[in-house]
Amino acid sequence: MIQVTDFDLRLLRIFKTVTDCGGFSAAESALNMNLSTISTHMADLEGRIAIRLCERGRRGFQLTDGGRSLYQLAEKLLDSVEDFRAGIGALQQRISGELSIGVVDNTTSDSHSRVAAAILAVKQRGADLHIKLRIMSPREIEDAVQERKLHVGIGPFRNRLPGLDYERLYTEELCLYCGQGHPLFESAPLQVQLDDLRGLDYVSRGYMRESRELGVATDFRIAATVYHMEAVVILVLSGKFLGYLPQHYAAQWVDQGRIRPLRPDLLNHRAEFSFVTRKDRELTIATQVLIDALRVGRSASTAGA
């Protein structure tokens, strides 16, 4: 029977990260290790348990049947270790261990976003707490919370998944924009007819369906699909595409005269931001402190509205 040591736990964490990243090379930055070191550690783990875990070849990185089974066992074990550390911290009335947070991209310019302040509140309570902050799409966040890879996620979630708890935080305002050089740029923002928008190239976010929700100007030609806000603004800045952007994020390029909103009186909508947690996962002290700080920010923004 194998005795699980700290070294074994380290090897299992490396194995899990490699698997989550989809391969050795992809895991280099996540692990802050070079390829040869990762390969050595994976070989050490295979030697410890006498099981071939993965194949690397023309078809890319693939787990063996034994590798898939070990991944499931490792996930349960590492979750248990983390829960144990958090439980010890609770007994000692201190915050320790790890806090994993998922957030959608480009929210820092929104005055309603309190993520940085909430992280400060947690770190002031637990200086030894290790923070993992990942930038992900809304669906990726939900999946990661469901799979216990994140303690909490923050974003605009359209379809609420069973097994997850959602709590509203704030509202983000979005407008439709075009870039300098676009045929409608000189007429923007208000001297544009809705008929002028029909058939124009439009950037769709893979996790949103803005044009279906607005009820007007639905005849865009979807000419690009992206999953991050920065990709939207790059395409809009090209002068060839229309795309929805949060007003707080677009402001810097509007001020530079590089993009303009199109009919903000009609073509605008709101994204409701929430935080999401897993229903059957007990909140750690760190998670609870973070959530409490986010709620304080929500109350402040409501009072100021």
Score class of each variant (00 low, 15 high):
Tyr166His: 05
Glu75Pro: 11
Leu214Asn: 04
Ser274Arg: 08
Gly89Ile: 04
Asp165Ile: 12
Ala144Lys: 05
Ala50Met: 00
Ser25Val: 15
Pro138Gly: 09
Leu99Thr: 12
Asp105Val: 00
Leu194Ile: 10
Ala305Thr: 13
Ala293Asp: 09
Arg10Met: 14
Lys279Cys: 14
Arg221Trp: 05
Phe185Gln: 04
Asp6Tyr: 09
Glu46Ile: 04
Tyr71Phe: 15
Gln93Trp: 10
Leu235Tyr: 04
Gly89Ser: 07
Arg114Trp: 08
Leu245Met: 08
Glu210Gln: 05
Asn268Pro: 09
Ala231Ile: 02
Thr40Trp: 11
Arg94Ile: 03
Leu266Gly: 01
Asp219Trp: 10
Gly126Asp: 03
Leu197Ala: 08
Gly67Val: 08
Ser204Met: 07
Thr277Tyr: 08
Gly181Arg: 05
Glu172Leu: 08
Asp280His: 11
Asp195Gln: 14
Leu31Ala: 14
Arg260Leu: 11
Arg295Cys: 00
Ala43Asn: 15
Thr108Arg: 12
Arg56Lys: 13
Tyr227Asp: 02
Ala43Glu: 15
Thr17Arg: 13
Gly57Asn: 15
Ala117Arg: 12
Ile14Leu: 15
Glu272Gly: 07
His41Asp: 12
Arg260Ser: 01
Gly239His: 08
Val276Thr: 11
Asp20Leu: 06
Ala293Ile: 11
His182Val: 06
Val103Ala: 10
Glu213Pro: 00
Ile291Gln: 04
Val233Cys: 00
Tyr249Glu: 03
Ser39Gln: 14
Ser80Ala: 12
Leu194His: 08
Glu82Asn: 08
Gln72Met: 12
Leu99Val: 14
Gly47Ser: 06
Arg114Ser: 05
Leu129Lys: 11
Gly243Cys: 00
Gln252Pro: 07
Ile2Pro: 13
Ser238Tyr: 00
Ala43Pro: 06
Leu184Pro: 04
Val226Tyr: 09
Ala118His: 01
Val233Trp: 02
Asp292Gln: 10
Ile222Glu: 11
Lys16Asp: 14
Glu140Ile: 02
Cys175Tyr: 01
Val254Met: 11
Gln252Trp: 09
Arg139Met: 09
Gly153Asn: 03
Asp195Phe: 12
Thr302Pro: 03
Arg59Thr: 05
Gly87Arg: 12
Asp83Ile: 10
Glu272Lys: 02
Ala50Val: 05
Ile154Thr: 09
Ala286Lys: 00
Leu53Lys: 03
Ile38Glu: 10
Ala27Lys: 04
Val18Cys: 07
Gln3Trp: 12
Ala118Tyr: 03
Gln288Leu: 11
Ser25Asn: 13
Tyr71Glu: 13
Ala251Phe: 04
Gly102Thr: 06
Val236Lys: 02
Gln180Asn: 03
Pro138Gln: 11
Leu150Pro: 02
Val103His: 02
Ala74Val: 06
His228Trp: 10
Gly304Leu: 15
Thr19Leu: 06
Leu235Cys: 03
Phe157Tyr: 13
Gln256Glu: 15
Ala224Trp: 01
His269Asp: 01
His112Thr: 03
Arg68Gln: 14
Phe84Ala: 13
Gly60Trp: 00
Asp128Ile: 04
Ala90Leu: 13
Ser238Asp: 01
Tyr177Met: 00
Ala74Ser: 12
Phe241Cys: 02
Ala217Val: 07
Leu53His: 04
Glu210Ala: 01
Leu63Asn: 10
Arg209Ala: 09
Gly297Lys: 03
Arg278Ala: 12
Tyr202Ile: 06
Ser299Asn: 14
His248Glu: 11
Leu190Lys: 14
Arg212Ser: 01
Lys240His: 05
